[in-house]
Simulated assay, not measured.
Amino acid sequence: MRILLAEDDADFAEALIDALVRQGLAVDWTRTLAATEEAIQQASYRLLLLDRQFPDGDGASIVPRVRAVQGDLPILILTAMHQVAHKVEGLDAGADDYLAKPFDMAELMARVRALSRRPARATPTMTLGNLTFDFESKQVYVRGEELKLPRRQVLVLEALCFRQGRTVRRHALEQAVYGLTEHVESNALESHISRLRRALVEAGVEIHTMRGIGYVLKEVSPEE
């Protein structure tokens, strides 16, 4: 299960990530609200662990915007703001749960398990040209036939399909494919996209390079 941790305290975040990973969870980590919103737009998560206090604002302020992208993503606020009024603010903003620091790790894990047991939303498929992408199973179909792709190429395609017709910035695409902590070779993304382009020649779609910005997935025009 992949979750997103939004926390600007590096020492606390690293300790928490270590505990979560020991529970078999995959964790992406963001340190600002801007990075958190970008991650939410580029990847699908089963849970968001969200601090309240960031250099660029109050974590509760982005809850409605997170809901606009991933409507029923469970959100657990973790914060040192422990007064009842603070909890009311966070829950009224749309968070599902609120846990004040310091907390017992066993209690956090119990809450994580409880929130993650909620049924995942029925994720639709996307069809463009002759391409169909199933976001739930991450299966790819061209003209109704399943197209087997390596995992990294599937993740590239998923991010592009999620925002089809809109530019996905290079950095955001790397985060979607590699997570936020993996080392990325300078030409690795281009290599995956090059191979993916060759695999999609019959799909009726093209991956356009927006030089200096990122990539966009578009249907091939009839005249092309």
Rank of each mutant, 00 (worst) to 15 (best):
L173Y: 07
D51F: 00
D8P: 13
E219F: 07
N130I: 01
R169W: 02
D28H: 13
R65N: 10
Y215W: 08
T209Q: 15
L155D: 14
V69N: 02
F103S: 03
P119E: 07
R152C: 02
L196Y: 03
G59I: 00
S44T: 09
P102I: 04
D28F: 13
R143M: 07
P124C: 11
S191G: 10
G59L: 02
Q53G: 00
L99T: 01
L50A: 01
R163Y: 05
G144M: 07
L200G: 14
G144N: 09
V63C: 13
E182N: 14
V154Y: 03
T36Q: 05
E202P: 04
R152Y: 05
L173D: 11
T36F: 04
R143F: 07
G59Y: 00
R195I: 00
H183G: 13
D8Y: 02
R169I: 02
A80I: 01
S186Q: 15
T79L: 07
Q83G: 06
L147H: 02
P124I: 11
E202W: 04
L173N: 08
V205K: 10
Q175L: 09
A85F: 03
I62V: 12
V154E: 07
A100Q: 05
E224N: 11
R197I: 09
F135A: 09
E146D: 10
G214C: 06
V205M: 09
G94V: 05
R197E: 14
E14Y: 12
G129A: 13
M81C: 12
R52A: 04
R163V: 06
Q175K: 11
E7T: 00
L180M: 15
E219Y: 08
E185R: 09
V69W: 01
V66T: 08
R169M: 09
H82Y: 02
G144K: 06
E146Y: 05
L73E: 01
T167F: 03
G214P: 04
L180I: 13
I193G: 14
V84K: 14
F54E: 01
A203R: 01
E107F: 03
E38D: 08
